[in-house]
Each structure stands twice: as structure tokens, then as C-alpha cells.
């Protein structure tokens, strides 16, 4: 009898135990910091108005500059007041320069000169216009004009 109990215990101890499944999680972390890329695709062309008091990319025959913007969001788009201009020597009167921009694509912005918050990620085409105006009896004169508009993403 004692031998049978011994034999039974041996059989029990030899029986295969169910394998214990082990699981583990592999965690991946990633952080994307706010970023912004600007590409100047084309520069603008300004033409003069019939009354010679407006030199603008919005006039007939003019064309805006275009910039491609790509961002993760959480940035601000703006244009700076124009500080760098080249005018013909014959132009001695004051000109008021007004830069504006509009955006289409991931960020729809109507034409404005103010800053815009871009909360959503994506890519957009920004069109940049520049208008120079003269008041009173002042007129634009013949020659080459050039002005630089700074487009800022921050």
C-alpha cells in the first residue's frame, strides 16, 4: 500500500505542468516639437495704377509672391512692416508700404496684415502682396522699385 502511494506521488510529480505565459509591453515614446518650414517659391511683381499713386501686386498685371508653409501647428504666421526698399533717384516723396498675406490649404486665412495663429498641422500656400501708396499730389516715377517683405513663422 505504501508503495502504491509512493508510485502515485511520483506520477503526479512527473505530470507536465501547464506552461505559464509571460507578457510584457514595449513602450515607444515620441515627442514632436513645434516646427515650421517656409519656402519662398516665387517673388512678387508690382505694377503701377493709372493714377500713378499705387504700386502694388494687387494692380492689373501684378502678381503676389508665394510661399509654401509646412508646420506641426502651434505657431504664428505674420509679415513685418517693410523697412528695406530701393527706389529710383527721381522719387523723393514718401511712400507708404503695406504688406499683406493670405493662405490656402491646411490653413485658410483671408488676406490680412495681422498675425495669425496656426493651430492645425499641415501644409499651406501663402500668397504675399505688397502695396505702396502715395498721397496728395505725389506720384511714382519711372525706374526700378524693390521692396523686401519678411514672412515670419514663430
Amino acid at each position: 500500500m505504501r508503495f502504491r502511494w509512493f508510485l502515485a506521488s511520483l506520477i503526479c510529480s512527473a505530470a507536465p505542468l501547464p506552461a505559464l505565459a509571460a507578457t510584457g509591453n514595449v513602450i515607444f515614446n515620441g515627442t514632436i516639437a513645434a516646427t515650421c518650414t517656409l519656402t519662398v517659391d516665387t517673388n512678387g511683381t508690382m505694377t503701377v495704377s493709372p493714377d500713378l499713386q499705387s504700386l502694388s501686386s494687387n494692380n492689373a498685371g501684378g502678381a503676389p509672391g508665394t510661399v509654401t508653409l509646412s508646420t506641426t501647428g502651434g505657431v504664428t504666421l505674420s509679415v513685418d512692416p517693410v523697412t528695406s526698399t530701393t527706389v529710383p533717384v527721381g522719387d523723393v516723396t514718401a511712400t507708404t508700404w503695406t504688406p499683406t498675406y493670405a493662405s490656402s490649404g491646411a490653413h485658410a486665412i483671408a488676406e490680412t496684415g495681422s498675425s495669425s495663429s496656426l493651430t492645425a498641422p499641415g501644409s499651406s500656400t501663402v500668397t504675399v502682396n505688397l502695396a505702396g501708396t502715395k498721397g496728395g499730389s505725389d506720384r511714382f516715377t519711372a525706374g526700378s522699385y524693390q521692396a523686401t517683405v519678411t514672412v515670419r513663422c514663430e
Partner: peptide
Amino acid sequence: AAGLAVSISGTAAFAQSMSPM
């Protein structure tokens, strides 16, 4: 008007990004 037109040739694109912001 033709003389005043500022014609710009866009032969090269200028672009950049920066991180962190």
C-alpha cells in the same frame, strides 16, 4: 507703368526651418 513694373525672376527657392522653436 511698364517701367515701374518690378519683375522678379524666381530662379531659386529660399527655405529653412529651425528646431527647437
